[in-house]
């Protein structure tokens, strides 16, 4: 064992599939370099398991560079583990000490059922996004500059909201498994921009409705989501969504059945 490398005990949630009950199982890993990412550490464990002819641990990951939102894991009681502003793929083993016991669990929410081990089904987020409908953004030849006047402040705010990568850490962190931070970011990024003005009200109503249908809890403003969000999405977005929703529900008319429907 080279100097600084660690031996760790891992307590990991194992669950065969969506319909069987799971349990915590202990594993030992040795000679873990502090320079490894958390996911590389799990790769090492999985290689060991495969060599022993055991079932490797299923966990989500894709880009491994902090931009896709695919990696998850509730590590030692916190989504994406210790530290703030990072996803699990950006968590490194130097955040742990030799001899540590690390508890690794999937996101826990009724709306995010466990598919296998540490992998949860986050398609509830996709269905909420789909309810947001479409906007038109010209991507052909460049527009005239300043064709769509957008104040700098609004552009920045919309961009900040659009930084959400849909990882679900906000839901995992929330004592109520509420998806309000995610939904509010998605509603905000469009409601702040001219492209999002058509259907602005309907979008807020439909996305909130879908959020409730999926079985997420309701926000009690603990701020845990904001503290754990890897992209620093602010709960100001939640206040904005509350406003958008209230105004929309008080003023939006029922859409008429017309030739546009299909």
């Amino acid at each position: 064992m080279s100097s600084g490398n660690m031996n760790l005990t891992l307590k990991i949630w194992r669950q065969k599939n969506v319909s069987t009950a799971g349990k915590m199982v202990s594993y030992q890993v040795t000679d873990i370099s502090p320079d490894m990412s958390f996911l590389e550490m799990l790769d090492v464990l999985n290689e060991q398991l495969i060599q022993k002819n055991e079932e490797p641990i299923a966990f989500d990951h894709d880009c491994r560079e902090g931009i896709c939102g695919m990696c998850s894991l509730y590590i030692n009681g916190r989504p994406h583990g210790p530290g703030s502003g990072i996803t699990t793929c950006q968590l490194h083993m130097r955040s742990f000490k030799d001899g540590d016991t690390i508890i690794i669990e999937p996101w826990r929410a009724k709306a995010f059922p466990v598919i296998k081990d540490l992998v949860v089904d986050r398609s509830a987020f996709d269905r909420i996004i789909a309810k947001g409908g479409f906007i038109s953004v010209n991507t052909g030849s460049a527009q005239d500059a300043n064709n769509l006047p957008i104040p700098k402040h609004d552009a920045d705010e919309a961009f900040n909201s659009a930084a959400c990568i849909g990882c679900g850490a906000c839901v995992a962190a929330c004592v109520n498994s509420s998806a309000m931070l995610f939904v509010s970011a998605k509603v905000s990024q469009l409601s702040l921009l001219p492209q999002g003005q058509p259907e602005r009200k309907q979008r807020a109503l439909d996305m909130v409705h879908q959020m409730d249908v999926e079985g997420f809890g309701s926000c009690s403003n603990t701020g845990a989501c904001e503290a754990e969000c890897p992209k620093g999405i602010s709960i100001e977005n939640i206040a904005r969504l509350n406003r958008e929703y209230l105004i929309a529900s008080l003023t939006e008319k029922e859409p008429k059945k017309g030739s546009g429907d299909n």
Partner: peptide, 13 residues
Amino acid sequence: MSSNKGLFKSSIT
């Protein structure tokens, strides 16, 4: 399509 009627049932309300 509309979910306006959900006002009194919605989590935000």
